[in-house]
């Protein structure tokens, strides 16, 4: 049997595509709303509904089902809550766990998987004994469609010590940089939030969108997190990626490796970004961008 942990109806099709090839799946629905649970059940497998979205609760419920049903594999998405909950499960039972998995194949009492390693600059293929926990990378496999109506039963979790005091939703821009043909990447070379206006002007002149490195989106919060590019943010594949004041850390470049053309503007000639770029200008962005924008507008 395969335990599929679904955090959202959007992830379950991909998880089931892998699970069905490996055994008989049942689903642990790790979310609170009844409509979402119904959507998950519409794939035709039995659903255990957990009325909590806390990783401690996931750990407790998954541990109960693991003990009762003895699944050979546990599959889930590579989200933070699922990682945390299932890493606790893996820790308790010494199960192998891999996240951001892109390929899975059955080897009898073993399972073989591939995943990105070294900021996705290396693909590692490894074999581990079952039972094992594998967390899939998003969009790595073709999802299966809905069909059938699975039985839904409740699964409870024990109260753990963690107390939730407050939750604050993040503010997102709603801009889908993953669909943009041209993306302007803003890095810490920009000295203030106001200066990012230059990147927006360039984006406008090129018909593109503005994205950001991790520190710009998370530490400084100059741009919303849904335009954060990289291994822990969005992966994009535009025709043209402009990295401006971006140093070219491997964790950032993992998000743009599928760009057709990469252009870098950086004042430091030795910045790693120039090794990952097709074209580059060694120069101050504050001098280069106004000229570039003016020339593009004139064309």
């Amino acid at each position: 049997m395969i335990m599929v942990v679904s955090q959202a109806p959007e992830d379950v099709g991909e998880l089931l595509a892998v699970a069905r090839k490996l055994g008989e799946p049942f689903v642990l629905a790790f979310q609170t709303s009844a409509e979402k649970v119904d959507e998950v059940a519409a794939y035709g497998h039995k659903v255990f509904r957990l009325r909590s979205d806390r990783p401690e609760a996931l750990f407790s419920a998954a541990n109960r089902l693991y003990g009762e049903l003895r699944p050979q594999l546990i599959l889930g998405p590579s989200t933070k809550n699922v990682r945390d909950g299932l890493a606790l499960l893996a820790g308790l039972h010494d199960l192998p766990l891999a996240s951001e998995v892109t390929q899975v194949s059955d080897e009898g009492s073993y399972v073989r998987y591939s995943r990105g390693f070294m900021s996705e600059r290396v693909i590692m293929t490894a074999k581990v004994p079952k039972p094992a926990v594998l967390l899939l990378k998003q969009k790595a496999v073709e999802p299966v469609g809905k069909g059938g109506k699975g039985e839904v039963v409740e699964v409870s979790s024990e109260q753990q010590g963690v107390k939730l005091l407050e939750r604050r939703p993040k503010q997102f821009s709603g801009v889908r940089i993953e669909d943009a043909e041209v993306v302007i990447g803003v890095g810490r070379g920009f000295k203030s939030k106001e200066d990012i206006q230059l990147a927006f002007e360039l984006a406008k002149a090129l018909g593109g969108q503005v994205g950001a490195t991790r520190p710009i989106a998370t530490d400084l919060k100059w741009l919303p997190e849904d335009v954060w590019i990289g291994i822990s943010g969005k992966r994009i594949a535009p025709k043209l990626y402009f990295a401006i004041g971006v140093s070219g850390a491997p964790q950032h470049m993992a998000g743009v490796s599928d760009a057709k053309v990469i252009v870098a503007i950086n004042k430091d000639k030795a910045a790693p970004i120039f090794k990952y770029a097709d074209y580059g200008i060694v120069g101050d962005l504050y001098k280069t961008l106004p000229v570039l924008i003016a020339k593009l507008k004139r064309q």
């Binding site: 390693f117 996705e120 693909i123 490894a126 074999k127 490796s257 120039f274 090794k275 990952y276």
Partner: peptide, 17 residues
């Protein structure tokens, strides 16, 4: 875990600076 393979992902860029 036994690691079976570690393959480098190659992307070559023009690097015209």
């Amino acid at each position: 875990r036994s690691i079976e393979e570690m393959k480098v992902v190659t992307t070559s860029r023009k690097q015209l600076i």
